[in-house]
Simulated scan of single mutants.
Amino acid sequence: MTKEEFTEDVYCIGCGAEIQTEDPDERGYTPVAALQKGMESGQLLCQRCFRLRHYNQMEKVSVTDDEFLAMLNTISSEDALVVNVIDLFDVYGSLIPGLHRFAGNNPVLVVGNKVDVLPKSVKMSRVRQWLTEQVQAVGLRPVDVVLVSGKKATSIDQLLETIEKYRKGRDVYVVGVTNVGKSTVMNQIIKAATGNNEDVITTSQFPGTTLDQIRIPLDDGHFIIDTPGIIHHHQMAHVLSEKELRLVAPQSEIKPITYQLNPEQTLFLGGASRFDFISGEKSSFTCYFANDMKIHRTKLEKADEFYKKHLGGLLQPPSAEDVENFPPLVRHEFNVKVPMDIVFSGLGWITVRKPGKVAAWVPKGVDAVMRKPII
């Protein structure tokens, strides 16, 4: 028995997504065996909602730009607190364009996730101030900024207290782009709020919508509403495979590496990106990337030849089998006058301390930007 054998569309009673049995990575996926049982019992859940219901496990789901914009427009007409989860390792790739307009008069609480990957020597007060400045630069005026680790459950209790402080008896909408760890944060919120008691969260407490929202019940009858992640098309995640992403996405505290470079030297960040020191005084450049990222130094004049020869081999990612489909690197030049970070969106950054001219090469479609140093 498959979904196609029914004359009417069938939907998940947890989130409202249309049930499908073909693609585990798409919304509404349900294994055929689960579909049969669900139809017989009248309790048809997609795999995502089933895992939430029985294991308090929240999985990420994404929507198209149009769907997400429609959802944001809905939020602006609500009286609610908006919680925006941002990846501290990829702030630029985490920002939702125009969120301040879509939030309307609703307050926005910014949550910086993955604080566990930053070096322990970093002062959290500085990071919090830095993140505040970054979101203010794009027009967001958050009522507060909280730094957490969804993976380590760091400061989740503080996050819940802050949410309670600002929601003032209203619903809470949690928004974020894909790959920022929003589902991991939501899992920790559920665990903290329910004591990991699966009987607290029941199917009936998750009314569905066509946008695949999940509603986490609060004691006063309101909800924390988990929304689908919007796809940010400038993220590195869109040019690397899932296996390669695990290699370049930090899984633990970053161990910075500092290189002493002369002008006309190049650093290759695997084969995914490249950094050129074009001109300036000999200086130190500190690299903040996943600990498994292999960095190779060569002369600028030999860089093109080196890349062509070793891409997919010495320079990975991409892997040899993915080289053919890997986008060409695009050059972005920067004139640095004061200490700045050169950011390779979704990959990491290099801190430039002295004035000089540098260039960042990133896959076509991925962003490279210059910002005030985070560390």
Results as ranks from 00 to 15, higher is better:
81 L>N: 04
82 V>S: 05
84 N>K: 01
84 N>G: 02
85 V>P: 11
85 V>C: 11
86 I>T: 10
86 I>M: 05
86 I>D: 13
87 D>G: 05
87 D>S: 10
89 F>H: 12
89 F>P: 02
90 D>N: 15
91 V>A: 04
91 V>N: 09
95 L>F: 11
95 L>E: 09
95 L>N: 06
96 I>D: 06
96 I>F: 11
97 P>L: 07
97 P>I: 03
98 G>Q: 12
99 L>V: 03
100 H>V: 03
101 R>L: 14
102 F>Q: 01
102 F>M: 00
103 A>K: 08
104 G>D: 12
105 N>H: 08
105 N>V: 05
106 N>G: 05
106 N>P: 08
111 V>Y: 09
111 V>C: 03
112 G>C: 11
112 G>S: 09
112 G>W: 11
113 N>T: 06
113 N>M: 13
114 K>L: 07
114 K>G: 01
115 V>A: 15
116 D>Y: 13
116 D>W: 12
117 V>C: 07
117 V>D: 05
117 V>W: 13
118 L>Q: 06
118 L>A: 02
119 P>I: 00
120 K>W: 07
121 S>G: 15
122 V>H: 07
123 K>H: 15
124 M>L: 15
125 S>P: 00
125 S>D: 15
125 S>Y: 11
126 R>H: 14
126 R>D: 12
127 V>D: 08
127 V>Y: 06
128 R>D: 02
128 R>I: 08
129 Q>N: 13
130 W>S: 10
131 L>D: 06
131 L>C: 10
132 T>E: 14
133 E>T: 09
134 Q>N: 03
134 Q>T: 00
136 Q>S: 12
137 A>E: 14
137 A>C: 03
139 G>C: 07
143 V>H: 05
144 D>R: 04
144 D>W: 09
145 V>K: 05
146 V>M: 05
146 V>D: 00
147 L>E: 01
147 L>M: 15
147 L>P: 03
147 L>T: 01
149 S>H: 03
150 G>V: 00
152 K>R: 14
153 A>M: 00
154 T>P: 01
156 I>V: 14
157 D>P: 00
157 D>V: 13
157 D>S: 12
159 L>A: 04
160 L>N: 13
161 E>T: 14
163 I>E: 04
163 I>M: 14
163 I>R: 00
164 E>N: 14
165 K>H: 13
165 K>P: 03
166 Y>P: 02
168 K>P: 01
169 G>H: 14
169 G>K: 06
170 R>K: 15
170 R>C: 10
171 D>T: 04
171 D>G: 02
172 V>K: 03
